[in-house]
């Protein structure tokens, strides 16, 4: 159940940031920097006395951030609020900046994956790691396809983005942190998509683990850089 486009990731690409990562899903590519937990840049009004706040910026390839980027930021925030242990750092802010490098379908999923890698690089405590994937139901065939290119997504009847946490607990159900479905679809199509997403995210989790362990193995060498075999 792994029909993903080739994945690759690099952690620690930016020297100025507390954590950073680049994540490619096929040719869709996102660069994320993480700063914090810090009190710098945190307005009095936004400060929360019992937890850290997440400040997410999603920056498009060109031009200034529009309404679609705001929506993307909101999706990323929804996802990671449920995954980061915000209560560990009260009265602080964790700043996440996601820069789109190339959008070839599944940008939101790639942004979430890159954010997970960058948060790990910054050492932000999380309950689990998060992976995201975009599924689509093809208009003509009704087939459920995972992680498609922009060209292929134009043939979709419905598009579903899932972000799933690696911690499953005792429950047999997957831990879905983000669900964003759009198009024309039925309940059973949705649950089939979720099954496909669970399979795909399992593969992404395995990839993320390998990436991190390779980086640790490299030890004191400066950067962890790895390609999927």
């Amino acid at each position: 159940m792994d029909n993903l486009r080739p994945l690759s990731t690099t952690q620690g690409v930016l020297y100025g940031a507390d954590g950073s990562a680049r994540f490619h899903m096929g040719s869709t590519s996102v660069l994320v920097s993480v700063n914090g937990p810090q009190s710098q840049g945190l307005g009095m009004r936004d400060e929360q006395e019992d937890r850290a706040i997440l400040d997410i910026s999603h920056i498009p390839i060109s031009g200034t951030a529009g309404v679609a980027d705001k929506h993307m930021e909101e999706c990323i925030r929804t996802t990671f609020e449920s995954a980061i242990l915000l209560g560990y750092h009260p009265r602080t802010m964790i700043q996440v900046i996601a820069q789109t490098i190339k959008d070839d379908g599944g940008l939101l999923a790639a942004s979430i994956n890159a954010t997970t890698m960058a948060l790990m690089d910054a050492g932000i405590p999380m309950t689990a790691i998060v992976a995201a994937v975009t599924c689509m139901v093809e208009k003509e065939t009704g087939a459920i396809l995972v992680d498609q290119t922009a060209e292929s997504l134009e043939r979709a009847k419905s598009i579903h983005t899932f972000a799933i946490s690696s911690a499953r607990g005792n429950s047999p159900d997957p831990n879905v942190l983000l669900l964003h479905s759009l198009g024309l679809f039925t309940e059973s199509e949705l649950s089939h998509c979720q099954e496909a997403a669970v399979g795909a995210t399992d593969a992404i989790f395995a990839f993320m683990r390998k990436a991190v362990s390779k980086k640790i193995e490299k030890g004191h060498q400066q950067d962890g850089d790895m390609q999927e075999d």
Partner: peptide, 26 residues
């Protein structure tokens, strides 16, 4: 048929940068 399903964070007007959630999945 369904047109859209979204999970939204527990979040209200006027608290733009505030996060209210600490967990929860669907």
């Amino acid at each position: 048929e369904l047109l859209c399903i979204q999970r939204l964070a527990g979040w209200v007007e006027g608290a733009d940068a505030r996060c209210t959630g600490t967990g929860g999945t669907v």
